[in-house]
Amino acid sequence: MTYVDKPTVSNVVKFDDPNVKKVQKIKVMLNTGTDIYQGACKKRGSTLKDEYRKVAGIAYMDPKDMARLGVANWESVLVKSDWGEVVVYAAHSRDAPHEEMIFIPKGPWANVIVSPETYCCNDPTYKGIEATVEKSDKEVLLMADLMRSVYRKYTKNEKNVDELPSLGEMPVYRKK
């Protein structure tokens, strides 16, 4: 089982649960770190592929939090912190319950919202970041598109980077 299309996630909470009070937005604590699916996909080198966005562009949330927001597995959520905002998939965490805590595996998606502050101690604060989560109808970007839209290194003069055609899932370069 070295190749997966997407991580296996459980589906445990019903969305029409009458005991759950629906909200637009929840405040959460964001943790990032490694995860076995992310590790396997990243180190195999499949970072441009759809698989990478499914393993690293994903917020593992408590099922109750997801019910409160009204999002199902593999629907998009917008995560905002003081450092930026990013659209990722939502999925039921296999470590639940951990209400008001979300886990995004390390990767380009998590990078947008983690704190670069090292407090003069060389290590950025990757864990314990305050963030908010809300439902989103935007699509999660593929890695190459995300890097282009966030850092804009080679598209500085473009006005609407998000409207450019996708860079796709394969390396793009001009051969000799």
Partner: peptide, 16 residues
């Protein structure tokens, strides 16, 4: 190494 995947965005901004 892969700073694009593992550095916070705020630090990576300078790489642009």
């Amino acid at each position: 190494a892969d700073p694009g995947a593992h550095f916070p965005g705020g630090a990576n901004m300078h790489l642009a």
